[in-house]
Write a protein that binds this DNA or RNA. Sequence first.
DNA 1: CTACCAATAT
DNA 2: CATATTGGTA
Length: 338
Amino acid sequence: MREDESNWFSRWEEDLPSLEELTPLSQTLITPDLALAFDIRNPPPTSTAIAAAAAAVGAQQNQLPHTHPPPPPPPPPPPTASASPSPTNPLGPAPPQPPEFGADSADLASGGAGDEPARTLKRPRLVWTPQLHKRFVDAVAHLGIKNAVPKTIMQLMNVDGLTRENVASHLQKYRLYLKRMQGLSSGGAAANGAAAAAGLGAGSDAATDHLFASSPVPAHFLHPGRPNSDHFLPFVPVAALQHHHHQHQMAAAVAHPQLQNQYHRQVGHFGSPTNGGGGGGGGFEHPFLARQTPPQQQPVHRMGAPLHNPVPGYLEDLESANGNGGRKVLTLFPTGDD
DNA sequence: CTACCAATAT
DNA sequence: CATATTGGTA
């Protein structure tokens, strides 16, 4: 049993980051339903989509999975017209997202899925794009390490198509990353976890930081035993369900399971040109799949998130993996937690 | 039984 | 290496 449940809300404030952290993240996940909706099995003659994708290095995640989903029946919203007070997504509603399509989906000849979806199809590998990860971190940050468990995180992220397993897996890795960093940052000059996370120290250079360094790590993460500043946010776990009203819920990017080559070195130019530089609030996205699938979550009656609706328009995020040594610019949150 | 976690497999 | 999958456990 989770013994902490008794006092988890007593310490909510501790973990509560600053409200401003609520980042209007937006991600698009191609959910199988979606794919199905688009009818992938009726692909255009396009062929070298994959090659194209490879060529389009700037974009790494936009392959369309041809997964036929285990039919998640669109649950008819039977809200008896009563609840649904704050539809505001805790972490972030999705700003306008350019519905860009990857075009295509190479059909693999596996298994004769010539016709109807074989019910035993697996989902494509989820690609944790920086944006997605950002959302992940935000969710964890907002939940607090204590409550940051896969299910909760998943719900908070509210990314369509994301499964608990996905989050769990990533969470595991994330924890490892944090742990590694704790050891390095503690006692060292780097008092700031974010700094270490950025890839400053020697701990994160090439490998581990790829994705993780993209998102600042909340300071409290590195020091679980030490509440930083007491945040006071008398918030209550409002049971927040997501569906209700259209909020762009995007999807995450997925890649083909098989065509997973091991060469990708393109994590570096995310900044969308349209935005002018990285960072830009609300404006940087990639060729992602945008679309939302009908509600598909279970009526889990669990707590929601103590977040409030973020104001869209302010985004931070950074990315710069140049091999220049050292120096990392952390465009941290406006709160300046570090 | 559900969910978490760590280990293991792909 | 990044995810997925599995097994044991709370």
